[in-house]
Design a protein around this nucleic acid. Structure first.
Lengths: 145, 145
DNA sequence: CGTAATTGGTTTCATTTGTAACCATCGAAA
DNA sequence: TTTCGATGGTTACAAATGAAACCAATTACG
């Protein structure tokens, strides 16, 4: 009889780990500011790049366009970002953080980095390169088909 | 100014990858049988262990008890599993697959394994041990706190 | 040109999810 | 034994999500 060992099955291991890490990390943006993950990613994308379109945001952070649309709407409601219509193409809007949005971003960045450092600090140097490289290789593998 | 590089941020990399792999893998149970992920995991848990309680299922496959409850209800509706009340403790029910449930499981196991093999085949031997070990180490790191 | 196909983004609707409240049963302690 | 806290599991409600339909503006092309 053929049995699948769930615990060692790669898709399951990956998902479980990502879920645990993500849940833990979410405390930084959810508990402190009541943000959802799409909202956090939107903030992070704009904080990193300054100004982006909704489409670019979706591509950078792997979000469906409806998620982006809703996240942007909520951040706008909070006055954390503003939209500026494109000069040449009136379908496009350029998004950027307001002062308040930038302030929130600047407050969270060090917390995010600290979170990552704390996690990595529990690993040996070899283990750190192992995940980094392993994840990189797997990402490449998924791409080429 | 302090910026967070989202692309290389561990929680993000992990989640993105897990999401992509999981989405790809879901074709095997979603497209073929219309199962949700909790339903697939329930099937996989019972197929692997023969008989389990709902609580045990939740622990093994990292699912909230409401997810388990609903997945079990749906699989029961399909007549893919049955419940047997515990002799001594009437709160507990032992779950096990029916013939139909087992048949579906046996059909999917080779597909799941093939999926994993195909993915791993795109990596070098070194990269394969890198993810395996990296994920293992990270899981340990999350546990100890 | 004028029409069709594409693109950027929003909205609607059905499904999935999480939280919390809930019901029943059990075990321990008074 | 009664009572209280814990445990196994379900349900109700609100929020998050995905798919598909949609609107408007733009581009491609006959």
């Amino acid at each position: 009889m053929d049995v699948l060992e769930l615990e060692s099955f790669l898709p399951y291991r990956l998902y479980r780990l990502a879920d645990a890490v993500s849940r833990e990390f979410s405390r930084i943006y959810k508990d402190r500011h009541g943000l959802t993950r799409p909202e956090w990613r939107t903030l992070a994308g704009l904080g990193q790049h300054g100004s982006m379109t909704a489409t670019a945001l979706g591509e950078q952070s792997a979000m469906h366009k409806t998620k982006v649309s809703r996240a942007v709407a909520e951040l706008e409601r909070r006055r954390w970002l503003t939209r500026k219509p494109d000069e040449n193409d009136r379908r496009i809007e350029h998004l950027m953080l307001t002062g308040a949005g930038l302030a929130a971003y600047r407050e969270m960045v060090p917390l995010a980095k600290a979170f990552e450092q704390e996690l990595l600090a529990k690993l040996s140097a070899g283990e750190r390169t192992a995940i980094t490289n392993g994840l990189g290789a797997l990402k490449e593998a998924l791409g080429k088909d």
